[in-house]
Design a binder for these strands. Sequence first.
RNA 1: GCUGGCGUAGCUCAAUGGCAGAGCAGCUGAUUUGUAAUCAGCAGGUUAUCGGUUCAAGUCCGAUCGCCAGCUCCA
Length: 636
Amino acid sequence: MAQVKVTLVDGSEKWYPAGINPGEIASEIGPGLSRSALIAKVNDTYIDLNRPITEDARLEIVTFESKEGKSAFRHTAAHILAQAVKRLYPSARLGIGPSIEDGFYYDFDVETPFSTEDLERIEKEMRKIVKENYPLERIEVDREEAVRLFSKMGEAYKVELIRDLPQGEKITCYRQGEFIDLCTGPHVPSTGKIKAFKLLSVAGAYWRGDEKNPMLQRIYGTAFPKKTALDEYLQKLEEARKRDHRKLGKQLDLFSIQEEGPGFPFFHPKGMVLRNILEDFWRKEHRKRGYQEIKTPIILHEKLWRQSGHWDHYKENMYFTNIDNESYAIKPMNCPGSMLLYRRKIHSYRDLPLRVAELGLVHRHELSGTLHGLMRVRCFTQDDAHIFMLPSQVEDEIVRVIDLVDHFYRAFGFDYHVELSTRPEKAMGSVEIWDRATAALKEALERKGMEYKVNEGDGAFYGPKIDFHLEDALGRTWQCATIQLDFLMPERFDLTYIGPDGGRHRPVMIHRVVFGAIERFIAILTEHYAGAFPVWLSPVQVKILTIADRHRPYAEEIKGRLEERELRVEEDYRDEKIGYKVRQAELEKVPYMLVIGDHEVENGSVAVRERGQKDRGLMSIDEFMSLVEAEVESKG
RNA sequence: GCUGGCGUAGCUCAAUGGCAGAGCAGCUGAUUUGUAAUCAGCAGGUUAUCGGUUCAAGUCCGAUCGCCAGCUCCA
């Protein structure tokens, strides 16, 4: 019998009879691996454990530890969900059911949407299917057969998917018990593997993500090989919810959104402190890098928006108003205003690049269902800038902005990922111009050696963009910084500069934001620190707590000393026990508490308590101030 | 905008279709206290809004508004 050489991940090589499958190899290696084996990676493809190995290959037994293992595991869980739904609701039509980060979902077309009680029923049925422990069987069919099979079952959506598959490609299905689904796999060997799972929520989702298509019912769930891991995950979710900036914003009294202004946030005194610190930091860093600051009006005449192209491409998102029988728009972006200012005078090539920054308040009519605390609002302040350049300066300028964003995000300890968004369907300008702009962005990214994901068709209507995404507490990502390259606005506004040849030339322009929107950035910041802001950002840096009334004069003196040094101080002189005041300060997440009693008054010291820690002991006031100031300086 | 869920005191939450409640916060008083909650009293509500069913609605039905999850869209 022919033999195949199998190279394992540790580099060892073994010979097996041809046709052996990865599952058999796993059990030969050991019962532990055999038990945790889910799928296999043979050379570079992931396959089921029962697929035969017919030639020499590199083999990796894939467990739940790896991304692909998790994905296959949860994909199988999705099939179990679909099977359960088909048992309970035979008329349900199947959409798609992939694994996702941390779980899986499956879409169903059903007459009446699922309720929470339905989820419990479905879960119960799923448990039965797991217990019945069906093997997952891979079936290859040709196209006609597949169409016939799924048509017979009435699975119109599946038939549509099959029709869209490339011609000539093999079509695979997976069967478990009475249930069969169109699927490329791979899957874990049997339904019994899915030991711990939970259905989490139901939501509507358009078929194929298009709002013109019917809305299906999507059931979300997650699955783990062990109950303890599932519980741990649910616990983690619970913890993450406590970091929600909407909750913390209320608790810490940073901001609110009132029913009278959906999507229009109110900033409270403490939120304003935070916001002003961010703006101060921003101004300082921008001045250092040669930016000038401007402010343009919030309301401008409709004709400006016609000229900029917003009228044609962005009208649905804009608010309009009338003044003296003329139509005006409330700005959804800052660029047109900035264009007018560029145009106010003649520019020499020697003036370029011209970096013009604006903390600009914009209003956009976002769909009501998309509003989300401070993350997604209807009015927000962009830390905008428009950079007018010679064509030869484009790449350098993009790189400078990338560096700036990186500098900022490092200061806050943020991880981010980058996406390159290309020409959308309803774009202004020619494909050639877009290609040129996109190439320039790519070039800059590659020069920085940055990894990025391409987001086809997601650019602004006037140009492609590099987006920087940050994560919230629940791992949802939000676009914050963006760098957009624009050849079109300068054209539309007939911007020029005088070149060395004395002639007029067209500048190129970058639109960019670093925070993105200050509101969103504050939201991310709040979730990132779980409300326990580092000292330099804390709305209140020090809280003075007195033991008894008689300590008040000394506490006042301390407070004065701290305020002289521009530290942000609050006091709590109420006649309450110290434990009570400490508790309250802890809940307010104030980084430093100073306890003042007889002892401190006598020897002119302060007793320092650090947030989340115990008593740090006595210190002189000078010692304490240097400590805090050093911490502020280091942005720690 | 769409699908589903939810909306009770400033906050967190109770209340079979049958008298709207608790804890915290607030106010008043007592207490003068050493590192995560001192005690007592008082006050706090058109149960989101509007309409309907019912002898009776926080609870059932409809509409509107808002919030939450997701989809679509986006900083």
